[in-house]
Write a protein that binds this DNA or RNA. Structure first.
Length: 389
DNA sequence: TTAGCCCTGGGGTGATGACC
DNA sequence: GGTCATCACCCCAGGGCTAA
């Protein structure tokens, strides 16, 4: 095989492999067996190793990993990666709706999306190819984890359709499905290694591994939920999501457009009941104003958009015993009381300590050593004592 | 074992603007 | 001028992860 033949075969094999990858990991509709897929991959790797100068950065063979990153490069986000304001109550969600209503002088609609419990990621594409993947970091700058992200098979390295903007960024959430997480822990158990405690923190840790080959073994997954581009002229967020799906991104099939806040409440209620049936963890619902023109009108606060909010599902709570209270001195000399508790399992973590914030909180709860207390996760991972019995 | 990071929630304080 | 809501900013906290 000469070089020009090799180039042609590499192109054909790459397209075939990306197509089967998409069918398997995005559409969940595989058309060939794993054995056949592996054969195609072996063939590609064999030709690329004979003609190393034909190896492209976004070849499907790069998904198996291999590169080692000693220190992740810090990258400034082109568009700041803000977090969302959030709420646990319908009243506050109604207040949010009132604020939106007040800020807009015409009818508006919302788009409701599931809030995946994972790690936020920004993916930059140039001419249809993935060029960079950056973590949220502090919202202004994050770590370049491109090599690790390339091993995630539901993320397209090369886009399918052709009508994408020349340059753009998509954002989404990287996470472990329940199945992938169970497989990893089973392997760890067989190897005598300590088990991972929960999918979210494991995904976060996996993304920062130095050896991308190890990341590839973990079968992380990714859903995308927004796009930032100067050259993409569509006014509706819902239409943008549809276009992203056409280009090959994995978009949630449970996203729903709601014409009123009552429809939003129904969507929340439905997924609060049904979330345990999903093959991955969610911790709430994200509500966004659909029109980009409206989003622009509403604008941003310093840390979050005024046109979107996250409704978080009620936290689990468990009962345990208060052993003692200790005091921690912070960097500035501030003293914070901390409850030492009998260890309990809560939402995938082991809780042994909980912040009591200040003396007033201790007084308000009328806390004493040996009391039985209720602990709940305040949002994501902060244990909080909510009552005494 | 420890440091540093991930991500997020919440307390505290002060500034600002709307409204009465 | 007083009150209230909203916002910005800083600081501190948690458990779990990887890397050294």
């Amino acid at each position: 095989m000469n070089k020009s033949e090799a180039k042609k075969v590499i192109k054909e094999l790459s397209e075939k492999l990306e197509e089967h990858n998409y069918l398997y990991y995005v559409e969940s509709d595989p058309k060939i067996s794993d054995f056949e897929y592996d054969k195609l991959m072996e063939e590609l790797i064999a030709i690329e190793s004979k003609f190393p100068d034909l190896l492209s950065d976004n070849s499907p063979s790069q998904r198996v990993g291999g590169s080692v990153t000693k220190k992740f490069k810090t990258v400034k986000h082109v568009y700041p990666m803000l977090s969302l304001g959030n709420t646990y109550s319908q009243e506050e969600l109604s207040d949010f709706d009132q604020r939106v209503q007040k800020g807009l002088d015409e009818n508006y609609a919302y788009v409701c999306e599931l809030k995946f419990d994972g790690v936020a990621i920004g993916l930059r594409y140039k001419n249809g190819e993935l060029v960079q993947a950056v973590t949220r970091g502090d919202g202004v700058k994050g770590d370049d984890v491109t090599n690790n992200v390339k091993t995630i098979k539901s993320i397209p390295l090369v886009l399918r359709a052709k009508n994408f903007p020349g340059e753009f960024e998509v954002r989404g959430e990287i996470f472990f499905s329940h199945k992938a997480f169970a497989i990893i822990n089973k392997e760890r158990e067989e190897n005598g290694e300590p088990l991972f405690a929960n999918p979210r923190n494991s995904a976060s840790g996996s993304l920062k591994m130095q050896e991308s080959k190890e990341v590839a073994k973990r079968n992380l997954d990714c859903y995308l939920y927004s796009i930032y581009s100067e050259g993409f002229k569509t006014d509706l967020h819902s239409e943008r999501l549809k276009a992203m799906g056409d280009w090959g991104f994995k978009i949630s099939e449970h996203t729903k457009k709601c014409k009123s806040i009552d429809e939003v409440f129904k969507y929340i209620e439905k997924w609060d009941k049904q979330r345990s049936k999903l093959p991955y963890d969610i911790d709430g619902v994200v509500i966004k104003v659909d029109s980009l023109k409206h989003q622009e009108q509403l604008g941003y606060t310093s840390k979050s958009p005024r046109w979107a909010i996250a409704y978080k599902f009620k936290a689990e709570s468990v009962s345990t015993k208060l052993i003692s209270v200790s005091y921690q001195v912070g960097r500035t000399g501030a003293i914070t009381p901390v409850a030492n508790l009998e260890a309990v399992q809560l939402a995938g973590t082991t809780v042994k300590r909980a912040s009591l914030h200040n003396a007033d909180q201790i007084e308000m709860l009328d806390l004493h050593e040996d009391d039985h207390v209720y602990v709940e996760k305040g949002g994501e991972i902060i244990p909080k004592i909510t009552g005494v019995n």
